[in-house]
């Protein structure tokens, strides 16, 4: 294989499983939020799919979290270093201008530092803030009476719903941008290919 090996197998498998879970959750979530959109015929089954895929997402998150905890990937790939912060303007300039001119990406992914500064910020926010928040609020929704006191501490069902839905919107924003930016590699499919084979061109 050509290129640098940056995505280890467990993370590649996790990525695609998680992607599937997130997409199912977004589709079912969309129908839950807007019942007029009838993707599945039975609304109740939508609730159940959303609920069990939600549990699956929690497990998937825990796998990702402990994988990086054990392999020490957080420090390598997610911790924002001073050099990263200094590199942000260049990175923005690249996406806003350089890319059109066919310039080279200022960040070269390596096995020990696979994300650029902006990726680090985005992925860490999504994975370490919004995934736990959306999973936790979702679990509270799974048996409202059972978690009644917890929900009241948060401020009631409407606040819980608001937190869950805001996080869901952020996931949608993220996903759209993520999908588009996956086409910004050397070739349109380069990034996607590397997430399958592990090797970045």
């Amino acid at each position: 294989m050509k290129g640098t090996y940056i995505h280890p197998l467990p993370i590649r498998i996790w990525h695609w499983i998680n992607a599937f879970i997130v997409i199912v959750l977004i589709i079912t979530g969309l129908q839950l939020r807007i019942p007029y959109i009838s993707i599945f015929e039975n609304y109740r089954s939508v609730i159940l799919i959303h609920k069990y895929f939600g549990y699956a997402m929690t497990i998937s998150f825990l796998f990702w979290f402990f994988y990086y905890m054990i392999t020490g990937g957080f420090k390598k790939h997610y911790l924002l270093k001073i050099t990263d912060i200094k590199a942000i303007p260049n990175q923005v300039k690249y996406y806003m201008y350089g890319i059109f001119k066919g310039k080279k990406n200022p960040h070269t992914p390596s096995k020990d530092n696979k994300f650029n500064a902006m990726q680090k910020i985005t992925y860490a926010t999504i994975m370490l803030i919004f995934t736990p928040v959306i999973s936790f609020t979702g679990i509270l929704f799974s048996d409202i009476l059972y978690f009644f006191t917890w929900i009241n501490v948060i401020g009631g069902l409407r606040v819980l719903d608001a937190i869950h839905v805001i996080s869901a919107y952020i996931f949608v924003f993220y996903l759209i941008v993520h999908l588009y930016m996956s086409t910004l590699g050397k070739k349109i499919y380069s990034h996607t290919k590397s997430m399958i084979t592990g090797y970045e061109d």
């Binding site: 939020r33 719903d161 839905v165 805001i166 919107y169 949608v172 759209i176």
Partner: peptide, 15 residues
Amino acid sequence: FKLIDFMGITIIFFI
């Protein structure tokens, strides 16, 4: 609370 949807849909549009 409807503002959440309002903002969400607007941001998606801008993205």
